[in-house]
């Protein structure tokens, strides 16, 4: 054990005042201390991307950041994607295109795709494919995830 530190994590516009050891990763804090279990842990070494969240708008592997490093930062997780009962276009697209099966990797894919598209709405198709190779899925074979993200990207960009 090392000494716990008080920090504030702002997750989906809500402040969580918690105390954590410095060694606690951001994903563990989000899940264990803030009760937001929609973000999943798949490998804890930065390969699988299941724990992807947005920190100050940027997609990051939350297993590769310590919670104390996110003190005061704005964090978005899958629980904050929908606007009330209105699902985010990315969530809808994953349902429409069967972009998930067991659903374990899904929150990471959703946050990855939303984070990148919000920052780079005009990202090329090739670059978008490259981005999606960041995360692992073992169920879908990716084809439907790619379809879903492309469809949501078109919707997020809106009519031209």
């Amino acid at each position: 054990m090392s000494k716990k530190q008080p920090i504030t994590l702002n997750i989906n516009n809500r402040d969580h005042k918690i105390e954590v050891e410095p060694r606690k990763t951001l994903v563990d804090a989000i899940r264990d201390d803030c009760g937001q279990t929609g973000t999943h842990i798949g490998c804890e070494h930065g390969i699988c991307g299941a724990c992807t969240v947005l920190v100050d708008g940027e997609p990051v592997r939350s297993c590769l950041m310590f919670a104390v490093q996110a003190d005061g930062k704005t964090i978005r997780t899958v629980e904050g994607l929908a606007n009330g009962d209105e699902l985010h276009p990315m969530q809808k697209a994953f349902m429409d295109h069967h972009g998930l099966q067991c659903g374990f990797c899904t929150p990471g894919f959703l946050m990855l795709a939303v984070g990148v598209l919000e920052r780079e709405p005009d990202i090329s198709d090739e670059d978008l494919l490259d981005v999606l190779s960041s995360n692992l899925c073992r169920c879908t074979g990716y084809q439907n995830i790619i379809k879903a993200v492309r469809a949501a990207a078109a919707e997020m960009r809106g009519p031209r």
Binding site: G46, G49, T52, E58, P59, V60, R61, L64, M65, L112, G115, V116, D130, V131, S133, S134, N135
Partner: peptide
């Protein structure tokens, strides 16, 4: 830079 790991690694 595009060959360094993946996008969410490059943000950190």
């Amino acid at each position: 830079v595009r060959n360094i790991a993946h996008y969410p690694i490059r943000t950190r």
